[in-house]
Simulated scan of single mutants.
Amino acid sequence: MIKRSLLEPLRQALAESPAVCLLGPRQVGKTTLALDLAEPLGGLYLDLESEQDLAKLQEPEAYLSMHMDHLVILDEVHRLPGLFPALRGLIDRARRSDRRVGLYLLLGSASLDLLGQSGESLAGRLRFLEMSPLSVIEPTGASTERLWLRGGFPESLLAASDALSLRWRRDFIRTYLERDVPQFGPRIPAETLRRFWTMLAHRQGAPLNVAELARNIGVDAKTAGGYVDLLVDLLLARRVPSWHANVGKRLVKSPRLYWRDSGMLHALLGIPDMESLLAHPVVGASWEGFAIENLIDSAPEGTQAYYYRTSGGAEIDLLLGLPDGQQWAVEVKRSMAPRPERGFYAGCEDVGVSRRFVVYPGDEHFPLPHGVEAISLPGLATRLRLSAPTVAAG
């Protein structure tokens, strides 16, 4: 079993809060992680996609009152929207009896419903954590190249062959289109949404132009914007906003949109293996998105992620605003001899960054001119993870 890097943060959150909500796309490993954590505690697990478990919660307050001494795990909690007011009462009752932390672990496959439901009912009682697919700094036993090709969903990454991995990802996408999307949003024809997702895959990392997307699939801009919002809310895509400040430059302000899992991107584009990926026009954008997602996932809690681009050509692929006030600029290169573009240096001067990095596919770490460091993706991801402040137990 792979020890997930989120295990200790999740354990810490449950030691500090009465309820924790773990968000992440389906099949990312939320249930496995929750059961791994709860097993030594004798926790109670309820799957709200099971009719039997749903039946137990017809009177949620009465049923859960019988299990106040255990951690209760509620999987796919969006299936029971009326549960949150009951949880609020149970948490407040537990507080009065001095049981203040580690009561409920909620698992969800999307942020939109959960955030709306919990905002009022569980304000001040619920902490959110987000679980991403496996990253380059988790002990998977897979190479960075394999992780890039197959993506970080465990079933895909650990498949016996590239062909089996691709088949799993295609089934995963079909399940989302035909079953999961209708649960969370308006009824959208699966074929229309597939065309839209594939179109976005071809535009990996490009500035988001909703009006153009709308024209290409024959819908209005509001509808196309809703499709993008749904994809982001399902935690399958990431919008990276433009860094904005008064620097006296004309800034490109449209966000960039990335598929968060490189394996899903490749499945949508029909890329079966590494040779096909390296020959595909999306290879540079795919590597960039893979690096950006891994770095954002590895950064300390509270880090702000942006890109920077001006009409004059200054550009930073990823600008990380760390909680301690530092700003790290990252350029991503798919080259064993990485050299930053002139626009990267200009962008760093415009923003006034603290550190400058070029991420490349090699293993060595070495200096480049003008204070730039060439570093591997696992190397920079590890450095970001270690930069997180430690919280003393007690």
Rank of each mutant, 00 (worst) to 15 (best):
Leu193Trp: 03
Leu64Ser: 02
Gly371Tyr: 10
Gly89Phe: 11
Arg355Ala: 08
Asp273Arg: 14
Arg26Trp: 08
Ser111Val: 13
Leu265Val: 06
Leu320Phe: 05
Ala123Lys: 05
Pro378Gln: 05
Arg238Leu: 11
Glu288Asp: 10
Gly108Lys: 03
Ala38Cys: 08
Phe84Trp: 07
Gly394Cys: 04
Ala214Lys: 10
Leu23Cys: 13
Ser132Thr: 15
Leu208Thr: 00
Gly42Trp: 09
Leu278Asp: 03
Gly42Arg: 03
Lys249Gln: 15
Leu235Glu: 08
Trp287Pro: 03
Ser135Glu: 11
Leu380Tyr: 10
Ala291Arg: 00
Trp243Ile: 09
Glu315Ala: 00
Arg11His: 06
Thr192Gln: 15
Leu193Cys: 03
Ala346Leu: 14
Arg174Ile: 15
Arg383Phe: 03
Pro18Ile: 12
Ser165Met: 04
Leu166Asp: 14
Gln183Asn: 07
Ala392Trp: 12
Leu251Tyr: 06
Glu155Gln: 15
Gly347Cys: 00
Leu157Arg: 03
Ala245Phe: 05
Leu22Cys: 07
Leu64Asp: 02
Leu234Glu: 12
Gly218Ala: 07
Leu368Pro: 02
Leu87Asp: 00
Leu106Lys: 09
Gly379His: 06
Pro182Arg: 08
Ile91Cys: 10
Ala392Cys: 10
Arg342Tyr: 07
Ala329Gly: 04
Ala123Val: 11
Tyr104Trp: 05
Val358Trp: 05
Val101Pro: 00
Leu64Asn: 05
Val240Thr: 12
Asn216Tyr: 12
Gly313His: 11
Arg26Val: 05
Leu23His: 01
Asp297Pro: 06
Asp350Ser: 08
Ile271Thr: 00
Cys21Pro: 06
Leu230Lys: 04
Val358His: 00
Val282Gln: 06
Glu51Ser: 13
Ser335Lys: 02
Pro139Tyr: 09
Leu268Cys: 11
Leu114Gln: 07
Ala34Asn: 09
Leu377Asn: 03
Arg187Trp: 12
Arg96Phe: 13
Gly352Pro: 01
Arg96Cys: 13
Ser135Ile: 08
Phe196Glu: 13
Met336Phe: 13
Asp47Leu: 03
Phe153Gly: 06
Arg88Trp: 03
Arg170Ala: 13
Pro182Met: 02
Glu288Met: 04
Leu380Phe: 12
Val240Gln: 06
Arg4Gly: 04
Gly152Phe: 09
Arg334Glu: 10
Gly284Arg: 07
Gly312Asn: 13
Lys3Ser: 15
Arg195Leu: 10
Gly362Asn: 01
Gly124Ser: 01
Asp92Gln: 02
Glu130Ser: 11
Glu275Asp: 07
Asp261His: 11
Gly263His: 04
Ala374Gln: 01
Leu10Trp: 05
His266Ile: 15
Ser5Lys: 08
